[in-house]
Write a protein that binds this DNA or RNA. Sequence first.
DNA 1: GATGAATGAGATTTCATTCAT
DNA 2: TATGAATGAAATCTCATTCAT
Lengths: 201, 201, 201, 201
Amino acid sequence: MNTHSNSEKVSRPRIKDKRQAILDAALKVFAEGGVNGVPMPALAEQAQVGTGTIYRYFSSKEALVNELFREQKRATSKRLYSGLDQTLPAKSLFAIVWQRMADFSRSDPDAYMFMELQDHRPYLDDESRALEKKVLQPIVERYRQLQHEGLFRSDVRPEVLMSMVWGAFVNLIRAERDGHLHLQQSDIDAAFNACWSLCTG
Amino acid sequence: MNTHSNSEKVSRPRIKDKRQAILDAALKVFAEGGVNGVPMPALAEQAQVGTGTIYRYFSSKEALVNELFREQKRATSKRLYSGLDQTLPAKSLFAIVWQRMADFSRSDPDAYMFMELQDHRPYLDDESRALEKKVLQPIVERYRQLQHEGLFRSDVRPEVLMSMVWGAFVNLIRAERDGHLHLQQSDIDAAFNACWSLCTG
Amino acid sequence: MNTHSNSEKVSRPRIKDKRQAILDAALKVFAEGGVNGVPMPALAEQAQVGTGTIYRYFSSKEALVNELFREQKRATSKRLYSGLDQTLPAKSLFAIVWQRMADFSRSDPDAYMFMELQDHRPYLDDESRALEKKVLQPIVERYRQLQHEGLFRSDVRPEVLMSMVWGAFVNLIRAERDGHLHLQQSDIDAAFNACWSLCTG
Amino acid sequence: MNTHSNSEKVSRPRIKDKRQAILDAALKVFAEGGVNGVPMPALAEQAQVGTGTIYRYFSSKEALVNELFREQKRATSKRLYSGLDQTLPAKSLFAIVWQRMADFSRSDPDAYMFMELQDHRPYLDDESRALEKKVLQPIVERYRQLQHEGLFRSDVRPEVLMSMVWGAFVNLIRAERDGHLHLQQSDIDAAFNACWSLCTG
DNA sequence: GATGAATGAGATTTCATTCAT
DNA sequence: TATGAATGAAATCTCATTCAT
């Protein structure tokens, strides 16, 4: 049952390396308090490390935010788009991704919040921005392809379409966070249908 | 000798009161540098007032941000929704509002940016959040009405629909700001059509 | 009794501006504790200003050290070499400068110590180093002239000669500071004669 | 099994003990970066030992600096004054020592720099200062003796004379280090002659 | 009322030292 | 014994806010 037992060193609760502990803690506290709102000692405490330890792994707060951003960008991308059965009809695939987005925002709200919080933007460096673009590229291509197949409307550029779909979803979650509405699964499903209409015209 | 005499209003071109000068300056600098990124003395300089003067009109930076937020919320609301000719068909009205949103983001990018920057969110107080809800209410009602009229799809709750539309638009502008795409009027028009599909199904 | 009364501005002990107060305090505490040994808050306390105030006048500790160095370099130069009656015989002039050096080290030990402490060297920027050279130039020229006049020995380059004289003096003061000897006026005078021999051969 | 066995001296080229490796490394990095400028881990890396290892041999950075200082003080003293053929004329002996000083500063600039850098002074303890005095004592005595012999001028106390000679030399090297001049062997020789004049009057 | 120099609490970052392995 | 990751006290620097003028 003890997932980290290695003979019987029962007591130590978590042995994952400090670097990851710091990233995990950062995700949590930044999501809650905003990057600017969290002093390094507070982050250190959450990570259960000394303040100085953070600087063994990240050269500055800015560097930490960027590495966290990139880690999450990659993880999110994988989480949303990997392992899709491409033999399924497009609408099913779209629905799956949509549901994954919803699941993501529900099951890992810190990660979702951190990524959608604009808080980190002033910290982002070129590498992070490049990654952001790189991750979007294949999605745009998929949209373009669906347009060529005549499934998606072609009067809107694929990157515009994609941006709208993503924005519609994100704002839905944000509205819930801000207390403007409460989402149920039926809302998620209905929103999917609406987005499908957006894409197919 | 009295440098503040206004017996001859000749020299000073615009004497709008300092309070407004501060709010105007705040909008500009906050939009550019983020609320956290702009020290009060920098704001004071932009507003051409002394640092202390800001505190005669606003009790704190937080209070200033809130007042600015509320002022802009009201102005934006008026800008987008006032003076609409309700005799026009719904689609035309929707199109007008959509174009107003586009015009707003183009002609007053500072105001638009400030409102859509999440930067100010940690500062917002109850009054600001209440206003945000209050402003959204009539829009939601309009959506609900259009659903009752059978024009908008009814399988999506009106607040969900509205949130998606707003999110789709906002993310489009953000994508442009972030350099992911460049929008032309034709894109705005096409995006409108896509959003109309989203709403009507 | 009210030290801040301004009905009679007698009481306030020192009104000199903060910038100078900071430089004065810095000279004192750096001379005593070394640049590295004195934290900015300690300097602020000595200067009777807030820590932040230092940064209104100097962009960093390094900048402060450089400005202090340059100020002192100029003041020292003036103190040692200005207002000399050039009609006096060279030996008298040399004796006067030598005595001025001694007086300087006695009457303003902080300034003297700060300049001769090597402590500040890692902080010095190009401008400071350029000033150092610039200040030495006319002295070298004077040595060269005295060589041409046949008064000073000519088998040693003037800059070498000057460097030795200065080093001999400085090390004398340092030896006293380090407790290796105690200097009396008679020692100063005798040392002058020895240096004169060094120069004239 | 014995890690310090020297039955097979094959593999490790130089096994001088870690203590000495640390002192050697310290001399190098302190000369280059100043005592304050070099963190202990950087020193450890240069010495090719673990950071903690330093603390097995020296109780603190201060203790290390002091031991290094004393080691170098003794080595320098030996290097400059040992093995002199006391049957040679005084001027020859003086010339030899002078040349040894020059050679020292040239051939082992790290050691020379470390000793003449004032950087370490705030670290020095009583023992180091006592050693400094002790090492100077016989030199002073030699000066005194030469005065009694009528070779050196007697109007200057021997410790004053010695201090001036040393200062003259040191400042010459420092001037070169600071880029104020470049020394050739002829300058060293000429400077010797000038110093001889200083001593003999 | 208006000012902006001054403030000091608090932020980020460094580094001498320790200690589990 | 040797290690070097970890630590946290202490350094440098920032900035929201105050207050004497």
